[in-house]
């Protein structure tokens, strides 16, 4: 039980204050480190110790992003990549959970498909690049397909192991009540896999970004991955760095959203 703020001891107040101070210190250091890195980067390019043509610099990145914004292509590229990533992520999660459920339901199916899943898991998905181009063309479909391919196996394996790890005694209990398999699934297996579902989402977010950027490397005419590859080919390192920075922000943002979701659900679950 939490104490009311009005009725806690002085010692507890000091403890809380110290904790708060420490949080503030950590954030100050984090931001300070970022400022320091950017400052040093900017400085070494200004005084000529590093060639900004090769390393770019914070100010040139800022200028590049501003010009992308002015010609309207900034949000276009972000939108394309974001749409592909989210679509791939959603399809991989939904399909992955569905397949995992099917594999949990049928032992026969699971045993039959096991070697296929193992092989598919071990296969570097990028090897399928040429096939994907030929099958799906060079549009967003191909990239979404690649994203799904990269993410789905992790979803399947993660959820399947969570489903299988369901407490055997709780299953016995439900069976003694006369529960059907469907009831065991709904009342026990799915709710007890919630924590694993969230941790799977976190992994799947990372996988979705890998998939979409990899897809854009292989085939694309738009998107952040396209900007990076294009920038590299024409030696516009400013463009490469700018797109990379935006990517960092987007990936962090998406991870943060999942973490928020986790907090909300966990708070709900163990009140």
């Amino acid at each position: 039980m939490k104490h009311n703020l009005t009725e806690c001891s002085d010692e507890h107040m000091t403890f809380l204050k110290r904790r708060k101070k420490r949080r503030a210190l950590i954030w100050a250091l984090r931001l300070g480190l970022l400022a320091l890195l950017l400052g040093v980067w900017e400085l070494v390019t200004r005084v000529g110790w590093a060639d900004p043509f090769l390393t770019s610099s914070p100010s040139r990145i800022g200028a590049t992003i501003a010009s992308l914004y002015r010609d309207g292509s900034l949000f276009y590229h972000i939108g394309v990549t974001l749409a592909e990533t989210l679509a791939g992520f959603a399809i991989a999660v939904v399909l992955g959970c569905g397949v995992a459920l099917a594999l949990w339901w049928s032992d026969l199916l699971r045993e039959v498909l096991e070697p296929y899943i193992v092989v598919l898991n071990a296969l570097p998905k990028i090897a399928l690049g040429p096939l994907i181009i030929i099958w799906f063309g060079t549009g967003s479909t191909a990239i979404v397909f690649m994203t799904v391919l990269v993410g789905i196996i992790v979803c399947i394996l993660h959820m399947l192991s969570a489903f299988i790890a369901t407490d055997k005694n709780k299953i016995l209990l439900l069976r003694s009540m006369g529960a059907t398999k469907w009831q065991i699934l709904r009342k026990l297996v799915i709710p007890s896999s919630l924590a694993s579902f969230i941790s799977m989402l976190k992994v799947a977010v990372g996988m979705a970004w890998i998939g979409s950027i990899m897809g854009e490397y292989i085939v694309s005419r738009a998107g952040l991955g396209y900007l990076i590859v294009y920038g590299g080919q024409v030696f516009k390192l400013d463009l490469v760095m700018s797109a990379t920075c935006i990517l960092c922000l987007l990936a962090a943002g998406m991870y943060f959203l999942v973490a928020l979701l986790e907090k909300a659900i966990v708070k709900n679950a163990d009140r």
Partner: peptide
């Protein structure tokens, strides 16, 4: 009809 009680309470925490 039967009621089964196990070693642990097996209450569902959620």
């Amino acid at each position: 009809s039967f009621g089964y009680m196990l070693q642990r309470d097996e209450l569902f925490p959620w």
